[in-house]
């Protein structure tokens, strides 16, 4: 479990995140939503320890001792991962073992076996020798997930995991994360652009507005016409299609006149 208390981030003199407080329970999927520049990526970066911040991020229980989560507690999938030239899929996934290695220690046979298992599980074993630079968008996303799994961290931080994918690929990748979460009891914190998709997968949504929490709760409580319209500064309507919420802009009155 991750507990975030009164988190704030300054960029120069500008306050880009203020007073964010939220707990992520084991096995929970927390969706981060909000307009561009509302601080979703910054929040993930601060939780992962990449962005200097005020407030606190803690993991562990009272029994085991509470501490700043490290790379063995959190696996971050960046929005635009780097795909180094000439690195194979197997090598890329093996880098996920880095947090478990001492400063001058090399990967053990155990680490390699674990990576082989992860590749097998995500149906990537055939691609182990392929250079990561040659992968398509959907394949690359699976490989990035494989590296996060090899990291064996109980919490997965995803930054717009499907922004570069077509609809079919989006569904496949998110279903995969969903399946892994159920099997391994992982917590997921995912910043997502599409409100409907976020609502479909998340247990709770955290709606950010200009760096502050505008709403936090189950999707049906957060996806409200008035709240979204105010935060996104546009007339938005929440519809339901096959029982799933879909957020669309209200019909433009001028178009109706035509």
């Amino acid at each position: 479990m991750i507990s975030i208390r009164d988190l704030g981030v300054h960029r120069g003199r500008r306050e880009v995140l203020r007073g964010v407080t939220v707990d992520v329970a084991p096995g929970e999927w927390l969706g981060l939503v909000g307009p561009n520049g509302s601080g979703k990526s910054t929040l993930l970066g601060a939780v992962a320890g990449l962005v200097p911040h005020t407030g606190s991020v803690r993991t562990g229980s009272a029994r085991t001792g509470r501490r700043r989560p490290g790379a063995t507690d959190l696996a971050l999938m960046p929005q635009r991962p780097a795909w180094p030239e000439g690195m194979t899929v197997a090598e890329y996934v093996l880098l996920g073992r880095t947090p478990h290695l001492g400063w001058l220690v090399r990967e053990s046979p155990h680490d390699r076996r674990l990576v082989a298992e992860v590749l097998d599980r995500l149906d990537l074993a055939r691609w182990g020798g392929r250079p990561v630079g040659e992968l398509s968008g959907g394949e690359a996303q699976r490989v990035a997930i494989a590296r996060a799994l090899a990291q064996q961290a109980p919490v997965l931080l995803l930054d717009e995991p499907t922004s570069a994918l077509d609809l079919g690929m989006q569904a496949a990748v998110l279903d995969l994360v969903q399946q892994l979460r159920r099997c391994d009891g992982l917590s997921v914190v995912a910043a997502m652009h599409d409100l409907g998709t976020a609502a479909r997968h998340a247990d709770r949504l955290l709606l950010l507005s200009a760096g502050e929490v505008a709403a936090l709760g189950p999707p049906q409580e957060v996806l409200r016409d008035d709240l979204l319209s105010q935060v996104y500064d546009a007339d938005l309507r929440v519809h339901h299609v096959d029982g799933e919420p879909v957020v669309l802009a209200a019909p433009n009155p001028r178009q109706e006149l035509r």
């Binding site: 696996a75 960046p78 090598e91 947090p99």
Partner: peptide
């Protein structure tokens, strides 16, 4: 030679390296 492993992690960029605990 002892730090070649770290140089391979750095090929991912500073942010990803730090997210991997390096």
């Amino acid at each position: 030679a002892l730090h070649a492993r770290h140089l391979d992690v750095l090929r991912l960029g500073d942010d990803e390296a730090r997210a991997l605990g390096l």
